[in-house]
Computed example of a mutant assay.
Amino acid sequence: MDREIRPGVHWLYEPGPDRSGMIEGMEPIPDWYDEEESVHIPQCAYLLDGGDETLLIDTLSPASTDLILGELDELLDDGLDYLVVSHPDVPHAGGTGAIRREYDPTVVAPRYGDDHELYRLDDARLVGEGDSIDLGGYVVDFHEATFLDAPVSLWMSERTEGMLFTVDWMGFPHLESERLRFVDELDGDLDGTRLLQFHGRVLFWHQYVDVEKVQREIERVKRTHDPEMILPAHGLVIREDSGTYFELMKDVVAEIERRDRIGALG
């Protein structure tokens, strides 16, 4: 299942399992939740076709290998030139072997860390801050991830459309009826409860941070990249008012730390 975000930029989507149980124990139940619908924290990959060359960032999980190969077969005319693996983790790298066998792309991986052999990334082109790839109509730049859930991770940005690929950061759950919808298409606002639910559990280290320092880093990321759109690996695409969500993340970090301090983080 995919959706075109901009000409030649496709959002490839895997819903993940039903996570309704993590909501039902919350008090109060968040306004966005509908008990008649399943809840998903998705896996997302993104395909960029710049006209001259093509690039896929992340692979979805092994459970969706047939899905992503089918989508790529429909979307690609002349093969896949680059496969960017943000980090060696199942939802992001699990389809690497199958995609390599099918398309033989140049594999791109973080130049940070030393566990690349887990997904046979030890022969990849290693990139980091200051490296870029020109696809023709799109140019992507690579960055060491500021906020991550693994020892090493790679973020990516795109210059022409102002897209920032934040991988694990800015993830959040959504309802079955919201799959592949842009955040501005949701019935209500994306409030902090969704971001809090994801980051409090998946990026659990937020419990132990210096809140003001992390908030300064969030502001630095916003100022440095100033993105038009945010494309997370575990949430829906934010294509409008991206600055609003940086401000929300400042509140989320403070709330995670507060809940842990009083023993309320579940």
Rank of each mutant, 00 (worst) to 15 (best):
E4F: 12
R6F: 12
R6C: 00
P7D: 15
V9L: 05
W11G: 08
L12I: 12
P15K: 06
G16F: 03
S20D: 00
G25R: 07
M26S: 11
E27A: 07
P28Q: 04
P30T: 10
D34M: 13
E35I: 01
E35H: 05
E35G: 02
S38N: 14
H40D: 11
I41Y: 08
P42V: 09
C44H: 00
P62V: 04
P62T: 00
A63N: 06
A63D: 10
T65Y: 00
I68P: 00
L69Y: 00
L76N: 03
G79N: 11
L83N: 04
D89F: 14
G95N: 06
A98C: 02
D104A: 13
P105K: 07
D114C: 04
D114G: 08
L118M: 03
R120D: 11
D123G: 05
A124C: 10
L126D: 00
I133Q: 04
L135C: 13
G136L: 10
Y138C: 05
A145S: 08
A150C: 03
S153E: 06
W155T: 06
E161D: 07
F165D: 02
D168F: 09
P173N: 14
H174R: 12
R179D: 09
L180R: 14
R181C: 06
D187S: 13
G188Q: 13
G192S: 15
L195C: 11
Q197D: 12
F198I: 10
W205F: 15
Y208H: 10
V209S: 11
E212V: 12
K213H: 11
R216P: 00
R216S: 12
I218D: 04
V221N: 05
K222A: 08
R223T: 13
T224E: 12
M229E: 13
L231W: 03
L231C: 15
L231Q: 03
V237Y: 14
D241G: 12
T244I: 07
E255G: 04
E257T: 11
G263Q: 04
